[in-house]
Every structure is written in structure tokens, then in C-alpha cells.
Design a protein around this nucleic acid. Structure first.
Lengths: 178, 178
DNA sequence: CAAGACATGTAACTGGTTACATGATTCG
DNA sequence: CGAATCATGTAACCAGTTACATGTCTTG
């Protein structure tokens, strides 16, 4: 139950339409929490009912108005409550690990590891680029940006962990081949 | 859609009741894929219908018989098919990262990071203990155990990544305090 | 004026969690 | 004989995905 809170975080930075949020979930916030536009619209409607967000409609020609959502006081209060309560540890769910456990065919594993390695490397490159661009001097990070910086660092460290894993898998499989 | 496959992996190692599987999901396999007994029973019933597993019932006094499940040929075939098809990359979903992005209160973050650090350290200690116990000499690992070993290595590498992340968060927050 | 981005949704479904319910077997 | 463990499930719900549907606005 955290997509609500991811939306609240995003809206607390800047009001947005569902569409805007969906794009943010494709980029920045989405590196830590994926969501489709369908889900976002559904959740926004619920949050509106709960009073965590409010929407301002802009009339358009057709039936559906454009709605700009912003966070309300109860929404901000809920966000604070959530950030102050302990987070439950993530449930580990790794297809790849299950596949390894059921190990039958080196070639498929090798292929899979190669693809994953590539995508984690891309991810890492992207994060490191962001780091260089936005936080060239870690000592000079503003208090307001510290959280986002630490989230980015998490992305980097976890991507590195995954890269190391894939590399080890590939090395092990290749040594087996001999 | 991988709990089926996690169950198939587990049953391919040894036939079991739903209850047994639930316990395995609390231990070994469960480090990579969590599941509750309710879910396991539900999925087992579906898999039985599909013909991926079969069950042998042992009469007991009461209404509900004890059922021992084993993998069938079609089940083994499906497992093979699954291991040979590329796995989709995990969707990242981290409460903690979202929390960091919405950074408001250092104390709560610090508390959360401390708890997480502790649990990841415990996890790492457990994995490393397993590694020492079951794979003291990596060069001597049997082919049949290689997959399980590499899955364990993944657990270790990811736990280390998470630990590094928590440590960095704590270091950063403490330097902020000055 | 066409293409692509902007914008909002419904419906059906799959996957997973939480709460509740029941009874058998084993062991101290 | 009581507690713990073994054993199986239902029901209600929450979360997330995939497919489908519709129309507007901007820009070359």
C-alpha cells in the first residue's frame, strides 16, 4: 500500500494531472515504484474520495475534463504519518533466483544473465549520469535534496549488487564449460 | 506468475504436502519468493486442474484428507519451458526509496534505516553461514548444486548492497546533524 | 490536415494479503 | 490432558496488469 504515498510525494513536489504523474512514474519516481496510468487514475479517484488530494477540472470540449490534482492538508498529514511509521521490509521476489534454484539448462541461464547484466548496466549508467549532473559535489547537497540523493544512491548500490551477481553467474557457468 | 514455478522447482526436488511447501517457503525457497500457505493451497488446486501436479490423498478421521503433491510429466515440461524462456526484469518497488524521496523527518528515516540495516545483516549472516556450511570449497561444487549456490550468492550480493545503502544513509544523516 | 503527444478512463483478470475457521496428531 | 505442530481450507479484499476505448490539443 505505497503507491498512494508515492503519489503524495510526487504531488507534494508539484501538482499534476494523472497523465503527468504517469510520466513521472516512467522516469524519476518510477525507478523506485512502477505504476501504469490506469492504476494511477484508479488510485487518484480513491484518494480524492478519501480527501488526500483535490482536483481542479479544466473544461474541455468533450466529455472528459482535464483534472489537475494537488495534495490537501489531510494528504500531507497522511504522508507525514506514513514517513514516520516504520516501513515493512521488501518481499524478495526474484524470478531469476527461482530459475537458478531450478537450474536445468546452462544456456538459458547464461542468456538470461547476459540480458539482465546489460539492463542493470544501463540502469547504473543512467543513475551515475544523474548523480554527476545533479550532485557533482556531495558535500554541497542542500538539505531539501538529501532524500532524493540518497534514493539515487540506493539505486546505484542495488544495481551494482545485481551486476556483480550476473557477472558471477556468467563466470561460474563459463568455468563449468571447460 | 512465478509462484507456480517456484512450487514446481520445490516439488521437483521432493514431493510434499501444501503444509510442507509452506514451510519451505518460510525457509530456503522463500528467501527468493515469499508465499503464504493460503496462497499455496489455492495455487496447488489450480495446478492440479492443469495437470502440472498430482496429489495422493491419505485418509484421516475428519473431513479433510492429507494430500501429498508430486510433479507430473507435463509439470516438469512446463518447468523446463519456463526456465528456458527469458525472465522479465524485476519491478523495483521500494517503500524505503519512496520514503527517502519524500524526506521530511531525519529521525524516522534514521530509525527505519537502522532497523533495515539490522535485518539485512541478519540475512547476510544467515546466507554466509549457509555458504560456509554447504559450499566450503566453491571449486568442488557439484553441477547439480551449482544453481542453488548461485541463488545463494545472489542473496549475499543483494544483502550487501542493501547494507551499504543503509550505512550510507545513516552516515549522511549523522553528518547532517553537525 | 495528419501525426504525435496529451488526456482520461472502463473492464476483465491475475496475483497476493488478511482474517477467519476447523480439526488431527504428537509429545511431554 | 494440554500445548505445539501438523494440516487444509474459505471469504473478502487490496494491488496490479493487460486489453480496449475515446477524444483533444499542438505543431510541422
Amino acid at each position: 500500500m505505497a503507491i498512494e504515498h508515492a503519489i503524495l510525494v510526487s504531488l507534494s513536489e508539484k501538482s499534476a494531472t494523472g497523465y503527468d504523474l504517469a510520466r513521472r512514474f516512467d522516469a524519476s519516481i518510477g525507478h523506485f515504484w512502477r505504476a501504469t496510468h490506469q492504476q494511477i487514475y484508479k488510485v487518484l479517484a480513491r484518494m480524492d474520495e478519501q480527501g488526500w488530494v483535490k482536483s481542479e477540472a479544466t473544461k474541455r470540449g468533450g466529455r472528459l475534463d482535464k483534472k489537475t490534482y494537488s495534495i490537501t492538508d489531510p494528504g500531507a498529514k497522511e504522508l507525514l504519518r506514513w514517513t514516520q511509521s516504520p516501513s515493512s521490509p521488501e518481499v524478495m521476489r526474484s524470478d531469476f533466483a527461482v530459475k537458478l534454484r531450478g537450474f536445468v539448462d546452462s544456456d538459458s541461464i547464461r542468456e538470461d544473465a547476459t540480458t539482465r547484466l546489460e539492463s542493470y548496466r544501463e540502469m547504473l549508467a543512467f543513475y551515475e549520469e544523474s548523480e554527476r549532473k545533479f550532485y557533482p559535489d556531495p558535500a554541497k547537497i542542500k538539505d531539501s535534496a538529501r532524500g532524493a540523493y540518497l534514493a539515487l544512491r540506493g539505486g546505484i548500490l542495488l544495481a551494482q549488487g545485481n551486476i556483480a551477481w550476473c557477472e558471477e553467474v556468467l563466470a561460474e557457468l563459463n568455468s563449468e564449460r571447460r
